[in-house]
Write a protein that binds this DNA or RNA. Structure first.
Length: 258
DNA sequence: CCGGATGTTCACCT
DNA sequence: GAGGTGAACATCCG
């Protein structure tokens, strides 16, 4: 579930713990920490107070009076705060929801908790993450920023849009949806788009994020129901094409996406 | 049993 | 070195 849209809803939920103190790190999955020893993370987090929340792309940041706590959600991570999840998180696996998947759990003073529920364990917990490695946030991307991100790139447009160091926040579903709406072939060479097309695409990216946010998530796009073998373009009825671009399954309309 | 999955990283290649 | 590609990671689901 987590692309920029989902992580932004997580951030809003996380706002509830601003002003609270981390009383205990109840659970910590070593796999999420990389090479950092769990004890070190525990020692740095216990006792600090959360002072604010931020988001860059798909990275959720909790500012504290100690280190910055960075949370990445991988493919299947969700955030639960004080026992509640946000409403639009019903898509992955649709049904099962097992507390055994709670990989990171923080308990607060005076009360409450925050937990990351992540079946596939591809999420990460990072202290003081390097924020400079992320490009400008897709939700507010300008034509100039997008032009800079695509500049001279010989790779496919989709591959470049997925590159978090160039533009932060777009995932597989959002990229397919924005290319679909913009009428652009995601396989086109990224650096070959003319200025007008880039400006138009920047607008479509922002509008698509706003639209799907209002609908309830990255999986609510117009293209989404047709992302299957034999699926037809919702705009013109052409059979959709399935390819791998940038290492990800890609659905597009060979008729109106050029 | 097999393939694929809303992501990131790293080894390897051009 | 820059830039790009594909496998690996761990787990669940159809």
């Amino acid at each position: 579930m987590p692309e920029l849209i989902e992580v932004e809803t997580y951030r809003r939920q996380a706002d509830a713990v601003v002003g609270r103190r981390i009383r205990a790190v109840v659970a910590l999955d070593p796999l999420a920490l990389g090479d950092v020893p769990p004890e070190a993370v525990r020692a740095q987090l216990e006792g600090v107070t959360v002072t604010g929340t931020r988001r860059i792309g798909k990275l959720l940041l909790l500012d504290t009076d100690g280190p910055v706590l960075g949370l990445r959600f991988g493919m299947t991570g969700r955030l639960l705060v004080d026992g509640t999840a946000s409403i639009e998180e019903l898509e992955y696996g649709a049904d099962r929801d097992d507390p055994a998947w709670d990989r990171t759990v923080l308990a607060f003073d005076p009360d409450g908790e925050l937990r990351v529920r992540d079946p596939r364990r591809l999420g990460k917990v990072v202290l003081d993450p390097d924020e400079t490695r992320l490009g400008p946030d897709a939700a507010t991307i300008t034509a100039a920023e997008l032009a800079a991100a695509l500049d001279g790139a010989r790779t496919a447009l989709k591959a470049r849009l997925l590159d978090q160091g160039r533009i932060a926040g777009l995932g597989n579903l959002l990229v397919d949806e924005t290319c679909f709406r913009a009428g652009i072939d995601p396989g086109r060479q990224a650096g070959a788009l003319d200025g007008d097309t880039v400006a138009q695409l920047a607008g479509v990216i922002r509008e698509t994020i706003a639209d799907l946010t209002a609908r309830g998530g990255s999986h609510t796009g117009d293209l989404q129901p047709s992302r299957a073998v034999g699926g037809l373009c919702p705009r013109d009825g052409t059979e959709l094409e399935r390819r791998t671009i940038g290492g990800r399954t890609t659905w597009s309309c060979p008729h109106h996406q050029r």
